[in-house]
């Protein structure tokens, strides 16, 4: 059996202050992750499916070391992650994370400058960086907007700009937190086309979503998340009759009935 590219093993995590909030609101969980286990294999196209507050974003933040678990561990190529400066830098080159809100990670004066941040951090010279920036912007369909400031881009374009910033690192694994949130159907279709092209080029892609149809249609593999745990996983076909994946059930948030 092949070693997964990245593996989350029994992750537990609580945000600071969550326990105090849980005392004020009986019934509220204090653990954002309560034993999440997930394996991501090379070449996968995986959708992490769950309701709001199920822990999807928190789990994704663990995958590139942005958050460190209270308990459990993340393994990359079978080796536990290190959280030192060098180890994290090496990990973030391999595992690029794209946040749900693009304004959480875009900062520079122009689009091209923002995309150049990652390659320059890797120590590439300016000529090599320009090549990577051009390739990333072309891959995501924004080459003609390279010299525009970020606030002159639409929300959908800023989402793609954030992806371009991640692609410029040439990662093995691209992790996207709710990439289709706030996009119209045409924007979703365009984004998925770009993701398909990246996957066809050999990149492993993981995205989180609460859109069942998107998970079914796009992913090769789906992991269902609820209350900070992965409660089911497999191909969309194998989960077709899963009670969680019946749209009406999902909409009524009865995913909690899953054992």
């Amino acid at each position: 059996m092949t070693v997964p590219l990245l593996e989350a093993c029994d992750l537990h995590y609580a945000y600071p202050g969550a326990a105090a909030a849980a005392r004020l609101c009986p019934g509220q969980r204090c653990d954002a992750l309560a034993g999440s286990t997930l394996a991501i294999h090379r070449g996968a196209r995986l959708a992490l499916l769950g309701n709001n507050g199920s822990g999807k974003s928190t789990l994704l933040l663990h995958l590139n070391g942005t958050l460190r678990p209270d308990r459990g561990e993340v393994r990359c190529d079978g080796a536990p992650l290190g959280y030192g400066r060098r180890a994290l830098a090496a990990l973030r080159q391999r595992v690029a994370l794209v946040f749900q809100d693009p304004d959480d990670q875009l900062f520079a004066g122009t689009l091209a400058q923002d995309v150049s941040f990652g390659p320059l951090n890797l120590g590439l010279d300016e000529a090599a960086t320009r090549v990577r920036v051009a390739a990333s912007l072309t891959a995501i369909g924004l080459a003609d907007r390279a010299d525009l400031p970020l606030h002159m881009l639409s929300h959908g374009q800023r989402k793609r700009a954030a992806i371009a910033g991640a692609l410029a690192l040439q990662p093995d694994l691209l992790v996207l937190d709710e990439p289709t949130a706030g996009l119209d159907p045409a924007g979703v279709a365009l984004l998925l086309d770009h993701l398909d092209a990246l996957h066809a080029g050999g990149m492993t892609v993981v995205l989180s979503t609460h859109d069942i149809a998107l998970a079914r249609d796009w992913a090769d593999e789906v992991a269902l998340m609820h209350d900070g745990r992965i409660v089911a996983g497999g191909s969309p076909e194998s989960l077709r009759d899963h009670p969680c994946l019946r749209p009406a059930v999902f909409r009524r948030s009865r995913i909690s009935e899953v054992p």
Partner: peptide, 22 residues
């Protein structure tokens, strides 16, 4: 706070190097 986290995820340590504009 969110930008700090976002930049950390992109490899920020203590510098924000960017390309010189044309």
């Amino acid at each position: 706070a969110r930008l700090e986290r976002g930049l950390a995820a992109r490899g920020y340590v203590d510098r924000l190097p960017v390309l010189t504009p044309p």
